[in-house]
Amino acid sequence: MDPLADLLDGVRARSAAFCRAILEPPWSMRIADGAMLALATTLRGHAWIVPDDGAPVLMRTGDVAIIKGPQPYTIADDPATPPETVVHPGNRLTTVDGVDITDELRLGPRTSGQSPDGSAIVASGTYQVSGDVSDRLMKALPDVVHVPRLSTQAPVMELLAQEVSGDGPGQQVVLDRLLDLALIATLRAWFARPEAKAPGWYRAQSDPLVGPALRLIHDDPARPWTVASLAEKVGASRASFARRFATLVGEPPMTYITGWRMALAADLLRSSGTTIDSVARHVGYANAFALSVAFKRVRGVSPSHHRTGA
């Protein structure tokens, strides 16, 4: 498995919340659903994404955006248009004064608006993301990722838009899978753009030496890797491999391995009832004591304290 696949493994749609809003200017929606990650596309017209602490981003028809939460933000026909509607968890809609208008604005399954003939249509799906593994991906993204239509995988977005407008059997599962595909396609398109400044671990995947080494690390994090053993596996000298890895990834091989193991351990400690000794062996440490020493050195707390805090 490659680094992006591993990081995306914890960012999967499971009963994701979807919404298709049909709008007519002037319009403005305050998004306060607390989602950690949202993927939005403009199916008709345009929309401005207005972060509270950032520059507005214009989405034209067919563009796709990934918005990091959980802080609220605004989507509007114009950055100056004040919000009229607030979107809460579960696609509950209220006025800015708190009056529930969900039923009043419902036009169909997962669809809201004043009229089906509005000049703008915005479709979105949200993820609840948690865990240290997924956090490594989140830290590599700006608050708003904007990918123009020409760079997006249009068939995936069109399928997603069609499915949101219907109400067929098994729809939630279909929507979840399509949202995952759309997210992956958008991330690939974004990281391929010069302005993305893709993280080293992503750029290095295409390198003939470092790319295979990263896949080896992610396929078997518990293996007792050394710089020498990785270099031998990819057919390079120890010194040249270490230099190339550090240059492309931005940190030495063993530092990367330790960081990845600590992220895996942190998530396992949060999400499972397994013993610390079992977690230690899963991520490449001989026993709980060895993991505790490494975890406290890197994270500043012991595994047991991390688990209690989580």
Results as ranks from 00 to 15, higher is better:
V156Y: 07
A140H: 07
A161P: 02
H146T: 12
P155L: 02
A154T: 06
D135G: 14
V147L: 04
S165N: 06
K139E: 14
D180R: 00
P169Y: 06
L175D: 10
P148Y: 10
V145L: 06
L137C: 13
G166P: 00
R149D: 04
Q171W: 03
Q128V: 11
Q153H: 12
K139Y: 06
V145W: 09
L159Y: 02
Q172Y: 08
D167T: 08
G131A: 12
V173M: 08
R177P: 00
L141S: 12
P155K: 00
L137S: 15
K139P: 00
D143C: 05
M157H: 14
Q153C: 05
V147C: 07
M157E: 03
D180L: 00
D180Q: 01
V174T: 07
L150P: 00
D180V: 02
G168W: 06
D132E: 13
R136L: 11
D143P: 02
Q172L: 12
Q171M: 13
P142S: 07
D143T: 10
G131Q: 14
R149V: 02
R177C: 02
Q162Y: 07
Q162R: 13
G166R: 12
G170A: 07
V144R: 14
T152E: 02
G166Q: 11
D167G: 06
P155G: 00
P148A: 13
K139S: 10
V173S: 08
R136P: 03
V173E: 12
R177F: 01
A161K: 04
D132Q: 09
V147E: 05
S151T: 04
L141R: 06
P155V: 02
S134C: 13
V156W: 09
L178M: 03
R149M: 02
R149Y: 05
R177S: 07
L175C: 08
S134L: 10
Q128D: 13
Q172V: 13
E158M: 05
